[in-house]
Lab assay of single mutants.
Amino acid sequence: MTTFKLIINGKTLKGEITIEAVDAAEKEKIFKQYANDNGIDGEWTYDDATKTFTVTE
């Protein structure tokens, strides 16, 4: 398992979430669903070196 981080830079929601997953593709799906469930629609980036997804509205 690898630890992945999501950084949220939303208009109404900001924060960080850290979760373990098998791979980045699995985690991306979970993070995007979390963002969608919380009304966050923005630009996504991924840094493989730090295993960090960022979504910015």
Results as ranks from 00 to 15, higher is better:
4 F>W: 06
22 V>Y: 11
34 Y>M: 10
15 G>W: 15
6 L>D: 03
57 E>H: 08
44 W>P: 00
50 T>V: 02
24 A>M: 10
51 K>Y: 07
42 G>K: 03
5 K>N: 08
8 I>S: 01
22 V>R: 10
3 T>M: 08
17 I>Q: 01
50 T>L: 05
31 F>C: 12
10 G>L: 15
54 T>W: 11
11 K>A: 12
31 F>L: 10
32 K>A: 11
52 T>P: 00
36 N>F: 13
34 Y>C: 13
33 Q>T: 05
34 Y>D: 02
7 I>K: 03
32 K>N: 06
18 T>H: 10
1 M>Q: 06
55 V>W: 13
5 K>H: 11
1 M>T: 14
51 K>H: 12
4 F>E: 03
19 I>G: 10
20 E>Q: 10
23 D>H: 08
25 A>T: 08
42 G>V: 10
52 T>V: 03
57 E>M: 13
45 T>V: 10
27 K>A: 15
21 A>N: 11
24 A>R: 08
45 T>K: 06
39 G>T: 02
47 D>T: 02
2 T>I: 14
13 L>T: 11
47 D>G: 00
55 V>T: 02
25 A>N: 08
55 V>K: 04
6 L>S: 00
20 E>C: 14
32 K>C: 13
41 D>F: 13
39 G>I: 04
8 I>Y: 10
36 N>A: 14
33 Q>N: 07
16 E>T: 07
31 F>Y: 04
14 K>L: 13
50 T>S: 06
48 D>H: 06
10 G>H: 05
30 I>Q: 05
36 N>E: 12
2 T>S: 10
35 A>Y: 04
5 K>G: 01
37 D>G: 03
31 F>G: 01
29 K>I: 12
41 D>H: 11
44 W>M: 04
17 I>M: 08
17 I>W: 13
20 E>K: 11
54 T>L: 05
39 G>A: 10
2 T>H: 09
37 D>I: 08
2 T>Y: 14
26 E>P: 06
56 T>M: 06
5 K>T: 13
37 D>M: 09
21 A>P: 03
45 T>S: 11
11 K>Q: 14
40 I>R: 00
10 G>C: 15
5 K>M: 07
8 I>M: 07
23 D>W: 12
21 A>G: 15
11 K>G: 13
15 G>H: 13
2 T>F: 14
8 I>E: 01
5 K>L: 11
7 I>P: 00
6 L>E: 02
12 T>N: 11
37 D>Q: 07
28 E>H: 11
25 A>Y: 10
15 G>S: 10
29 K>E: 12
2 T>D: 08
54 T>S: 04
22 V>W: 12
33 Q>C: 13
4 F>L: 04
18 T>L: 10
18 T>M: 10
52 T>L: 02
21 A>Y: 10
57 E>S: 07
49 A>C: 13
49 A>P: 04
34 Y>T: 01
43 E>V: 12
5 K>Y: 14
20 E>A: 09
9 N>R: 07
25 A>W: 10
7 I>Y: 07
33 Q>D: 07
4 F>A: 01
25 A>M: 08
57 E>Y: 12
40 I>S: 01
51 K>T: 04
43 E>M: 09
45 T>R: 05
12 T>R: 04
1 M>A: 09
6 L>V: 13
33 Q>V: 05
8 I>G: 00
20 E>L: 13
10 G>F: 15
53 F>T: 13
53 F>Y: 07
52 T>F: 03
45 T>I: 06
51 K>S: 08
19 I>W: 13
45 T>P: 00
26 E>K: 04
6 L>I: 14
48 D>K: 04
43 E>G: 03
45 T>C: 08
9 N>S: 05
56 T>C: 13
34 Y>F: 12
29 K>G: 07
29 K>Q: 07
38 N>K: 08
14 K>D: 11
18 T>N: 06
37 D>K: 06
5 K>F: 13
10 G>R: 02
46 Y>L: 00
34 Y>I: 14
6 L>K: 00
16 E>G: 07
32 K>D: 03
14 K>Y: 14
16 E>A: 05
37 D>F: 04
10 G>V: 13
32 K>P: 01
34 Y>L: 11
6 L>R: 00
50 T>M: 02
45 T>W: 07
30 I>L: 10
50 T>K: 02
15 G>A: 15
36 N>H: 12
38 N>R: 14
53 F>Q: 00
24 A>I: 14
32 K>W: 10
46 Y>W: 04
43 E>C: 14
29 K>D: 09
30 I>H: 05
52 T>R: 01
7 I>R: 02
19 I>V: 07
49 A>E: 07
35 A>H: 02
52 T>S: 03
12 T>E: 12
44 W>Y: 03
22 V>C: 14
26 E>S: 08
54 T>F: 09
55 V>I: 12
55 V>P: 01
43 E>R: 07
5 K>A: 03
50 T>C: 09
2 T>E: 08
22 V>T: 09
41 D>C: 14
28 E>D: 10
51 K>N: 09
57 E>G: 07
38 N>M: 14
5 K>E: 06
32 K>I: 10
33 Q>A: 13
13 L>G: 09
57 E>Q: 08
22 V>E: 08
36 N>P: 02
45 T>F: 08
11 K>L: 14
14 K>N: 11
24 A>T: 11
47 D>H: 03
25 A>P: 10
30 I>F: 09
3 T>E: 06
38 N>G: 03
51 K>M: 09
47 D>K: 00
28 E>P: 03
14 K>W: 15
4 F>S: 03
32 K>G: 04
17 I>G: 02
4 F>V: 06
4 F>Q: 02
44 W>D: 00
51 K>V: 07
49 A>V: 10
40 I>H: 03
7 I>V: 11
29 K>C: 14
30 I>D: 05
36 N>W: 13
40 I>Y: 06
43 E>H: 10
39 G>F: 08
49 A>F: 06
46 Y>T: 02
48 D>R: 02
10 G>M: 15
57 E>A: 09
53 F>A: 05
7 I>A: 01
23 D>M: 07
16 E>H: 04
50 T>A: 02
20 E>S: 11
34 Y>K: 00
17 I>A: 02
36 N>T: 11
